[in-house]
Amino acid sequence: MDISGFILFWAAIFTSNILLTNFLGMCSYLSVSREIESALGLGTAVIFVITVTAALNWLVYNYILVPFEIVYLQYIVFIIVIAAFVQFLELLIERYAPALYYTLGIFLPLITVNCAIFGVVLFMIIRNYNFIQSIAFAAGSGIGWLLAILMLAGIRRKLKEKLVPIGLQGAGISLIITGIMALGFVGFSGIVQIQ
């Protein structure tokens, strides 16, 4: 595979954005985008978790699952690695940054099932990336996710939400905004070869 990690990194942020192109990682994205500060906090945590767990899962897949022929357990193993790491991170944040812990609330444990993280791991396996490519792709995806959530948070801050019909406030208008952004990103599809 000769796609450089550098290109994968940039492609993962812009042209194959994990959220706006692949639609992974929606739940926490929609709910935590009310404030820019919490969006920034969650996004940074996600970048961290994505990159580390991609690296860990790559090692586990290639040095444990494949040699021992237990590849069919891959979903379980990957999600456990992610869950364990997030649990560890939760304990750390609770101890050293309690304000962030309080703001994130249920969305910290929900990072575990953030489809974006699991999706990145699956993509890296399906596309046979090597270690460097995996890390580049994962880091880029994390930053792409952060970018998307910051964009939505920024728009919502500027949006005079009182002008939005009552029934559409909150989740409704966020979905429409995201839909428009996603349509914009459709224009990027296929520009950069990432497999």
């Binding site: 009552i166 029934g167 559409l168 979905l175």
Partner: peptide, 24 residues
């Protein structure tokens, strides 16, 4: 295309919020 689901879901939420939950 997938983005249409965004819009449809937003409309669904709108309708439900207005009629079912009687958002005022």
């Amino acid at each position: 295309m997938a983005p249409s689901a965004f819009f449809l879901l937003a409309i669904l939420i709108w309708i439900i919020n207005t009629h079912y939950y009687k958002a005022k």
